[in-house]
Simulated scan of single mutants.
Amino acid sequence: MSPLRVRDFRLLLFTSVAVFSGVALLLSVVPLWVVHNNAGEFAAGGSTAAFMASTVAAQFAVPRLVRAWGYRLVTASGAVFLGAPAPLLLIATDWPGILAVSLLRGIGFGFVTVCGAALVAELLPRTALANGSGLYGLAVGLPQLIGLPAGTAAVEHWGFVPVFLVAGVIPLLGLVAIFGLPAVAPTRHDDDLPAKGSLGRPWLVMLSGSIGYGALVTFLPLALTDTVAASAALFASAGAGLASRWVAGRLGTRIAAGRMLPWGLALTVLGMAGLAASIQGESPWSAVAAVAVAGVGFGLIQNDSLVVMFAAAPVGRASVAWNVAFDAGTGVGAVVVGALVAGSSYPVAFGLLALSAAALLPVALSAGRAV
Protein backbone atom coordinates (compact mmCIF):
# COMPACT_ATOMS: atom_id res chain seq x y z
CA MET A 1 0.00 0.00 0.00
CA SER A 2 1.26 3.46 -0.88
CA PRO A 3 1.39 5.77 2.17
CA LEU A 4 0.01 8.55 -0.04
CA ARG A 5 -3.35 6.76 -0.06
CA VAL A 6 -3.71 7.55 3.65
CA ARG A 7 -5.48 10.92 3.99
CA ASP A 8 -4.08 11.65 7.45
CA PHE A 9 -0.55 10.98 6.24
CA ARG A 10 -1.06 13.50 3.42
CA LEU A 11 -2.13 16.11 6.01
CA LEU A 12 1.04 15.35 7.97
CA LEU A 13 3.12 15.94 4.84
CA PHE A 14 1.45 19.34 4.22
CA THR A 15 2.05 20.38 7.82
CA SER A 16 5.69 19.32 7.61
CA VAL A 17 6.29 21.28 4.40
CA ALA A 18 4.87 24.46 5.95
CA VAL A 19 6.76 24.17 9.24
CA PHE A 20 10.11 23.18 7.76
CA SER A 21 9.88 25.98 5.18
CA GLY A 22 9.94 28.49 8.02
CA VAL A 23 12.99 26.78 9.48
CA ALA A 24 14.91 26.43 6.21
CA LEU A 25 14.50 30.08 5.21
CA LEU A 26 16.26 31.27 8.35
CA LEU A 27 18.74 28.51 9.10
CA SER A 28 21.54 30.12 7.09
CA VAL A 29 20.11 33.66 7.22
CA VAL A 30 20.22 34.15 11.00
CA PRO A 31 24.01 33.57 11.15
CA LEU A 32 24.35 36.13 8.34
CA TRP A 33 22.20 38.53 10.41
CA VAL A 34 24.52 38.04 13.38
CA VAL A 35 27.61 38.83 11.30
CA HIS A 36 25.76 41.73 9.63
CA ASN A 37 25.31 43.23 13.10
CA ASN A 38 29.06 43.09 13.75
CA ALA A 39 29.38 39.88 15.75
CA GLY A 40 31.88 37.20 14.65
CA GLU A 41 31.74 33.62 13.40
CA PHE A 42 31.60 32.20 16.92
CA ALA A 43 28.47 34.27 17.63
CA ALA A 44 27.03 33.19 14.26
CA GLY A 45 27.47 29.56 15.24
CA GLY A 46 25.99 30.37 18.64
CA SER A 47 22.72 31.50 17.03
CA THR A 48 22.28 28.09 15.40
CA ALA A 49 23.38 26.37 18.61
CA ALA A 50 20.83 28.31 20.68
CA PHE A 51 18.05 27.34 18.28
CA MET A 52 19.05 23.69 18.42
CA ALA A 53 19.64 23.68 22.18
CA SER A 54 16.09 24.78 22.94
CA THR A 55 14.87 22.36 20.24
CA VAL A 56 16.53 19.44 22.01
CA ALA A 57 15.30 20.56 25.45
CA ALA A 58 11.73 20.77 24.12
CA GLN A 59 11.99 17.37 22.43
CA PHE A 60 12.51 15.58 25.73
CA ALA A 61 9.22 17.02 26.99
CA VAL A 62 7.15 16.07 23.95
CA PRO A 63 6.12 12.48 24.90
CA ARG A 64 4.66 13.70 28.20
CA LEU A 65 2.97 16.68 26.53
CA VAL A 66 1.46 14.44 23.86
CA ARG A 67 0.00 12.14 26.49
CA ALA A 68 -1.58 15.16 28.20
CA TRP A 69 -2.67 17.27 25.20
CA GLY A 70 -2.54 15.03 22.13
CA TYR A 71 -0.60 15.36 18.89
CA ARG A 72 -2.73 18.11 17.36
CA LEU A 73 -2.37 20.65 20.15
CA VAL A 74 1.35 20.01 20.68
CA THR A 75 2.04 20.28 16.94
CA ALA A 76 -0.07 23.44 16.64
CA SER A 77 1.75 25.01 19.60
CA GLY A 78 5.03 24.19 17.89
CA ALA A 79 3.98 25.93 14.68
CA VAL A 80 3.05 29.07 16.63
CA PHE A 81 6.28 29.11 18.65
CA LEU A 82 8.28 28.65 15.46
CA GLY A 83 6.58 31.25 13.28
CA ALA A 84 5.35 34.06 15.53
CA PRO A 85 8.77 35.13 16.94
CA ALA A 86 10.54 35.28 13.54
CA PRO A 87 9.57 38.92 12.73
CA LEU A 88 11.04 39.95 16.10
CA LEU A 89 14.46 39.53 14.49
CA LEU A 90 13.79 42.88 12.83
CA ILE A 91 14.28 44.59 16.20
CA ALA A 92 16.70 42.05 17.68
CA THR A 93 19.91 43.51 16.32
CA ASP A 94 22.25 42.57 19.16
CA TRP A 95 23.51 39.07 19.89
CA PRO A 96 21.49 38.49 23.12
CA GLY A 97 18.28 39.53 21.36
CA ILE A 98 18.94 37.24 18.41
CA LEU A 99 19.69 34.36 20.77
CA ALA A 100 16.44 34.98 22.66
CA VAL A 101 14.40 34.77 19.46
CA SER A 102 16.32 31.65 18.42
CA LEU A 103 15.56 30.01 21.76
CA LEU A 104 11.83 30.68 21.40
CA ARG A 105 11.72 29.34 17.85
CA GLY A 106 13.67 26.27 18.89
CA ILE A 107 10.93 25.29 21.35
CA GLY A 108 8.44 25.18 18.50
CA PHE A 109 10.78 23.21 16.29
CA GLY A 110 11.30 20.66 19.06
CA PHE A 111 7.56 20.10 19.33
CA VAL A 112 6.91 19.62 15.62
CA THR A 113 9.94 17.43 14.86
CA VAL A 114 9.15 14.77 17.46
CA CYS A 115 5.42 14.80 16.69
CA GLY A 116 6.06 14.61 12.95
CA ALA A 117 8.44 11.65 13.05
CA ALA A 118 6.26 9.80 15.56
CA LEU A 119 3.11 10.34 13.48
CA VAL A 120 4.76 8.59 10.53
CA ALA A 121 4.75 5.42 12.61
CA GLU A 122 1.40 6.13 14.28
CA LEU A 123 -0.51 6.73 11.04
CA LEU A 124 1.00 3.99 8.84
CA PRO A 125 1.18 0.19 9.09
CA ARG A 126 4.61 -1.27 9.83
CA THR A 127 4.93 -2.61 6.26
CA ALA A 128 4.71 0.96 4.87
CA LEU A 129 7.08 2.49 7.41
CA ALA A 130 10.28 2.63 5.34
CA ASN A 131 8.48 4.10 2.32
CA GLY A 132 6.52 6.50 4.52
CA SER A 133 9.72 7.63 6.19
CA GLY A 134 11.22 8.36 2.79
CA LEU A 135 8.17 10.41 1.79
CA TYR A 136 8.27 12.26 5.08
CA GLY A 137 11.92 12.96 4.26
CA LEU A 138 10.74 14.58 1.02
CA ALA A 139 8.30 16.76 2.94
CA VAL A 140 10.99 18.02 5.31
CA GLY A 141 13.72 18.03 2.65
CA LEU A 142 11.97 20.00 -0.10
CA PRO A 143 11.79 23.13 2.09
CA GLN A 144 15.52 22.82 2.70
CA LEU A 145 16.19 22.33 -1.00
CA ILE A 146 14.34 25.55 -1.79
CA GLY A 147 14.56 27.52 1.43
CA LEU A 148 18.27 27.31 2.25
CA PRO A 149 19.52 28.85 -1.02
CA ALA A 150 16.41 31.03 -1.41
CA GLY A 151 16.89 32.60 2.01
CA THR A 152 20.47 33.68 1.35
CA ALA A 153 19.65 34.78 -2.21
CA ALA A 154 16.66 36.83 -1.01
CA VAL A 155 18.82 38.59 1.57
CA GLU A 156 21.35 39.38 -1.13
CA HIS A 157 18.73 40.97 -3.41
CA TRP A 158 16.01 42.33 -1.10
CA GLY A 159 17.48 42.46 2.38
CA PHE A 160 16.56 40.76 5.64
CA VAL A 161 13.11 42.28 6.25
CA PRO A 162 11.00 40.28 3.75
CA VAL A 163 12.78 37.04 4.66
CA PHE A 164 11.98 37.46 8.37
CA LEU A 165 8.34 38.29 7.62
CA VAL A 166 7.78 35.37 5.24
CA ALA A 167 9.50 32.95 7.64
CA GLY A 168 7.04 34.07 10.31
CA VAL A 169 3.92 33.47 8.24
CA ILE A 170 4.65 30.16 6.50
CA PRO A 171 4.71 27.87 9.60
CA LEU A 172 1.33 29.26 10.66
CA LEU A 173 -0.18 28.00 7.38
CA GLY A 174 0.40 24.50 8.69
CA LEU A 175 -2.30 25.08 11.30
CA VAL A 176 -4.90 24.51 8.55
CA ALA A 177 -3.82 20.88 8.17
CA ILE A 178 -2.85 20.23 11.78
CA PHE A 179 -6.42 20.38 13.03
CA GLY A 180 -7.49 17.97 10.31
CA LEU A 181 -5.31 15.25 11.82
CA PRO A 182 -7.09 12.53 13.81
CA ALA A 183 -7.02 12.38 17.59
CA VAL A 184 -4.48 9.54 17.61
CA ALA A 185 -4.07 8.04 21.06
CA PRO A 186 -0.33 7.93 21.82
CA THR A 187 -0.48 4.40 23.17
CA ARG A 188 2.69 3.46 21.33
CA HIS A 189 4.53 6.28 23.10
CA ASP A 190 4.70 4.22 26.30
CA ASP A 191 8.24 4.87 27.54
CA ASP A 192 7.90 2.02 30.03
CA LEU A 193 7.94 -0.54 27.23
CA PRO A 194 11.31 -2.30 26.93
CA ALA A 195 13.57 -1.55 24.00
CA LYS A 196 13.95 -4.40 21.50
CA GLY A 197 17.45 -3.41 20.40
CA SER A 198 20.18 -0.83 20.81
CA LEU A 199 19.52 2.83 20.01
CA GLY A 200 23.10 3.83 20.80
CA ARG A 201 24.86 2.85 17.60
CA PRO A 202 22.41 4.29 15.05
CA TRP A 203 22.13 7.35 17.32
CA LEU A 204 25.89 7.98 17.13
CA VAL A 205 25.92 7.62 13.34
CA MET A 206 22.99 10.03 13.03
CA LEU A 207 24.69 12.47 15.40
CA SER A 208 27.88 12.43 13.33
CA GLY A 209 25.98 13.12 10.11
CA SER A 210 24.00 15.96 11.66
CA ILE A 211 27.13 17.59 13.07
CA GLY A 212 28.42 17.91 9.52
CA TYR A 213 25.03 19.16 8.34
CA GLY A 214 24.94 21.85 11.04
CA ALA A 215 28.39 23.03 10.04
CA LEU A 216 27.41 23.21 6.37
CA VAL A 217 24.16 25.15 6.70
CA THR A 218 25.68 27.59 9.17
CA PHE A 219 28.99 28.36 7.51
CA LEU A 220 28.76 27.69 3.77
CA PRO A 221 27.58 31.26 3.05
CA LEU A 222 30.57 32.53 5.07
CA ALA A 223 33.19 29.99 3.96
CA LEU A 224 32.48 30.43 0.24
CA THR A 225 33.00 34.07 -0.68
CA ASP A 226 31.40 33.50 -4.08
CA THR A 227 27.71 34.08 -3.23
CA VAL A 228 26.48 32.21 -6.31
CA ALA A 229 28.58 29.19 -5.41
CA ALA A 230 27.42 29.40 -1.79
CA SER A 231 23.75 29.32 -2.82
CA ALA A 232 24.49 26.49 -5.27
CA ALA A 233 26.27 24.55 -2.52
CA LEU A 234 23.31 24.88 -0.15
CA PHE A 235 21.00 23.75 -2.97
CA ALA A 236 23.27 20.82 -3.84
CA SER A 237 23.54 19.66 -0.24
CA ALA A 238 19.78 19.81 0.36
CA GLY A 239 18.88 18.36 -3.04
CA ALA A 240 21.27 15.44 -2.78
CA GLY A 241 20.10 14.68 0.73
CA LEU A 242 16.46 14.87 -0.32
CA ALA A 243 16.92 12.49 -3.24
CA SER A 244 19.01 9.97 -1.33
CA ARG A 245 16.63 9.88 1.64
CA TRP A 246 13.74 9.13 -0.72
CA VAL A 247 15.76 6.44 -2.49
CA ALA A 248 16.70 4.95 0.87
CA GLY A 249 13.01 4.78 1.73
CA ARG A 250 12.23 2.93 -1.49
CA LEU A 251 15.14 0.53 -0.99
CA GLY A 252 14.21 0.01 2.65
CA THR A 253 11.43 -2.41 1.68
CA ARG A 254 14.07 -4.76 0.21
CA ILE A 255 17.24 -4.07 2.21
CA ALA A 256 17.54 -4.91 5.90
CA ALA A 257 17.46 -1.95 8.26
CA GLY A 258 20.90 -0.54 9.01
CA ARG A 259 22.68 -1.84 5.93
CA MET A 260 22.86 1.63 4.33
CA LEU A 261 24.39 3.35 7.36
CA PRO A 262 28.07 2.52 6.56
CA TRP A 263 27.66 3.74 2.97
CA GLY A 264 26.00 6.92 4.14
CA LEU A 265 28.72 7.67 6.68
CA ALA A 266 31.51 6.91 4.18
CA LEU A 267 30.02 9.36 1.68
CA THR A 268 29.67 11.98 4.42
CA VAL A 269 33.37 11.58 5.27
CA LEU A 270 34.34 11.86 1.60
CA GLY A 271 32.22 14.98 1.10
CA MET A 272 33.51 16.79 4.18
CA ALA A 273 37.11 16.02 3.29
CA GLY A 274 36.49 17.22 -0.26
CA LEU A 275 34.97 20.44 1.06
CA ALA A 276 38.02 21.10 3.21
CA ALA A 277 40.32 20.56 0.24
CA SER A 278 38.17 22.74 -2.03
CA ILE A 279 38.17 25.67 0.38
CA GLN A 280 41.92 25.31 0.87
CA GLY A 281 42.42 25.33 -2.90
CA GLU A 282 39.98 28.23 -3.36
CA SER A 283 37.85 26.17 -5.72
CA PRO A 284 34.22 27.07 -4.91
CA TRP A 285 32.61 24.85 -7.55
CA SER A 286 34.56 21.82 -6.34
CA ALA A 287 33.07 22.65 -2.95
CA VAL A 288 29.60 22.43 -4.49
CA ALA A 289 30.34 18.90 -5.71
CA ALA A 290 31.80 17.93 -2.33
CA VAL A 291 28.77 19.04 -0.33
CA ALA A 292 26.52 17.18 -2.79
CA VAL A 293 28.40 13.97 -1.92
CA ALA A 294 28.03 14.75 1.79
CA GLY A 295 24.32 15.38 1.22
CA VAL A 296 23.84 11.96 -0.39
CA GLY A 297 25.53 10.36 2.59
CA PHE A 298 23.45 12.22 5.14
CA GLY A 299 20.22 11.39 3.33
CA LEU A 300 21.00 7.67 3.56
CA ILE A 301 21.86 8.05 7.24
CA GLN A 302 18.65 9.93 8.04
CA ASN A 303 16.24 7.39 6.64
CA ASP A 304 18.05 4.21 7.62
CA SER A 305 18.80 5.31 11.17
CA LEU A 306 15.14 6.25 11.76
CA VAL A 307 13.94 2.85 10.53
CA VAL A 308 16.52 1.11 12.74
CA MET A 309 15.39 3.10 15.78
CA PHE A 310 11.70 2.38 15.17
CA ALA A 311 12.61 -1.33 15.02
CA ALA A 312 14.62 -1.11 18.23
CA ALA A 313 12.37 0.89 20.58
CA PRO A 314 8.82 2.21 21.13
CA VAL A 315 7.78 4.95 18.73
CA GLY A 316 7.95 7.83 21.22
CA ARG A 317 11.39 6.95 22.51
CA ALA A 318 12.76 6.31 19.02
CA SER A 319 11.38 9.60 17.67
CA VAL A 320 12.87 11.60 20.53
CA ALA A 321 16.26 9.87 20.18
CA TRP A 322 16.44 10.40 16.41
CA ASN A 323 15.39 14.04 16.58
CA VAL A 324 17.77 14.79 19.45
CA ALA A 325 20.62 13.31 17.39
CA PHE A 326 19.61 15.44 14.41
CA ASP A 327 19.15 18.73 16.23
CA ALA A 328 21.82 18.40 18.90
CA GLY A 329 24.28 17.48 16.17
CA THR A 330 23.25 20.49 14.09
CA GLY A 331 23.91 22.78 17.03
CA VAL A 332 27.17 21.09 17.95
CA GLY A 333 28.40 21.34 14.36
CA ALA A 334 27.73 25.07 14.34
CA VAL A 335 29.51 25.68 17.66
CA VAL A 336 32.48 23.42 16.96
CA VAL A 337 33.21 24.87 13.54
CA GLY A 338 32.70 28.40 14.84
CA ALA A 339 35.24 27.78 17.60
CA LEU A 340 37.70 26.04 15.27
CA VAL A 341 37.48 28.79 12.67
CA ALA A 342 38.10 31.42 15.33
CA GLY A 343 41.41 29.68 16.13
CA SER A 344 42.38 28.20 12.77
CA SER A 345 40.55 28.08 9.42
CA TYR A 346 37.61 26.57 7.57
CA PRO A 347 39.71 23.83 5.87
CA VAL A 348 41.03 22.68 9.25
CA ALA A 349 37.55 22.71 10.79
CA PHE A 350 35.89 20.68 8.03
CA GLY A 351 38.88 18.33 7.82
CA LEU A 352 38.59 17.53 11.52
CA LEU A 353 34.86 16.85 11.10
CA ALA A 354 35.70 14.36 8.35
CA LEU A 355 38.20 12.57 10.60
CA SER A 356 35.76 12.35 13.50
CA ALA A 357 33.07 10.89 11.24
CA ALA A 358 35.53 8.34 9.82
CA ALA A 359 36.25 7.10 13.33
CA LEU A 360 32.60 5.98 13.61
CA LEU A 361 32.63 3.73 10.52
CA PRO A 362 32.98 0.55 12.65
CA VAL A 363 29.95 1.67 14.66
CA ALA A 364 27.95 2.15 11.47
CA LEU A 365 28.91 -1.32 10.26
CA SER A 366 27.57 -2.93 13.42
CA ALA A 367 24.43 -0.78 13.87
CA GLY A 368 22.14 -2.89 11.70
CA ARG A 369 23.14 -6.12 13.46
CA ALA A 370 21.83 -4.77 16.77
CA VAL A 371 18.19 -4.74 15.61
Rank of each mutant, 00 (worst) to 15 (best):
P149C: 11
P186D: 00
V6S: 05
S319F: 08
A321R: 08
G333W: 05
A358L: 13
I211F: 09
W322Y: 15
F42N: 10
S345K: 02
P162I: 02
A68W: 10
Y71W: 02
L135K: 07
T48L: 12
P149Y: 02
A139W: 05
V228D: 11
P63V: 09
A177T: 11
S16E: 15
L265T: 04
L13P: 08
G22D: 04
H157K: 14
G316V: 03
D94S: 14
W69M: 15
G40K: 05
V112E: 08
T93P: 10
G137L: 06
T187A: 14
R72K: 14
G108V: 00
W285N: 04
G239E: 07
G316C: 02
P221S: 10
L275H: 01
A150T: 13
W158Q: 10
A118D: 00
S21Q: 03
A277R: 04
L352P: 07
D304S: 06
G174R: 04
A367E: 10
L181D: 04
V348W: 13
V169W: 11
L129Y: 01
V371D: 07
A53T: 15
A273F: 12
A128M: 15
G180K: 08
A290G: 04
A86I: 01
V308R: 12
D191E: 14
G83W: 01
F111Q: 07
D192S: 14
A313F: 02
F51I: 10
M260C: 07
M206L: 13
A312R: 00
A84D: 07
I178F: 04
A79V: 05
L99P: 09
F60A: 06
